[in-house]
Design a protein around this nucleic acid. Sequence first.
DNA 1: AAAACGGGGTT
DNA 2: AACCCAGTTTT
Length: 304
Amino acid sequence: MSDAAQGAAAQPLKPALVREINRALLAWYGASARPLKIRERSDPYGVLVSEVMAQQTQISRVDQLATAFLERFPTLEALAEAETAAVLVAWKGLGYNRRAVALQRAAAVAVAAGGLPSSVEALMALPGIGPYTARAVAAIAFRGREIPVDVNIARILNRLLGSSTPLSPREAQARANEFGSQLADGEAGTWAQAAMDLASTICRPVAPLCDRCPLHQRCASAGQPFHKEPRTATPRTPFAHTRRWLRGRLLDELREAGREGISIAGARGVHNEVAVAATISAMVSEGLAESLGGDRYRLPHRGD
DNA sequence: AAAACGGGGTT
DNA sequence: AACCCAGTTTT
């Protein structure tokens, strides 16, 4: 396969330049880190919980809700042994509820194996843990060397390197690891959190504050006129007409009902009984609910 | 490759 | 009212 056909891989940055960028970023972080409570924990379980919560979820909300969750389920074992119903109740407000089910299953698998694994590969084999979360846990909790690439770090890389087209996930991981390879042992997690703070406060998606950026002098995009791509307005169906709305509504009913469960008879908003039945059925297959027979359902419980 | 999956904060 | 978010799984 020729480079031309595949798209030539950009050449790596000089190690000396990489180290200089690392130094500037970590120095900035030392002075400007966001104060997040979740950073008070660096144990594998605590990191796992907050990183799963952080998937597609604003970190400020994770920071507010993670503490209560970790008090309710203080250890990997406690989470593994808990009623799934209790986990889903504690997950309220976080969305993407399948994450909660997957997280508990991951905990059960890990407990059976004697604890959370430390390698990216083994972490990724756990349910609900993909390329980002595996590297985040490995880097922050186990001194892993690979940089977890999320939307923030991808944006920093694209701007810093001046990519004409956005880096593919594979390319972005490779370029991120160039920085990881020039860090001292155990610093990859700090680097990632520094980059994410920079991306959040300075290298923002819109209106970046390049004049305050510690990487300004090394950035291919600094000073470039920034303008957001005009978004084509897509006609949106009313949210209450969507399946997501119905799922959220049913899950809230289930949370409220407790062990007794609910009857799914009747419509929910614009969704008729057939739609409700189909949706609750999907939720059962995803581990978000269980049947009590007839038209009654509840959150998943172990016993009667 | 594209769709599904939440819900709340920001602009 | 859009847009965005410390992504992953399923189709």
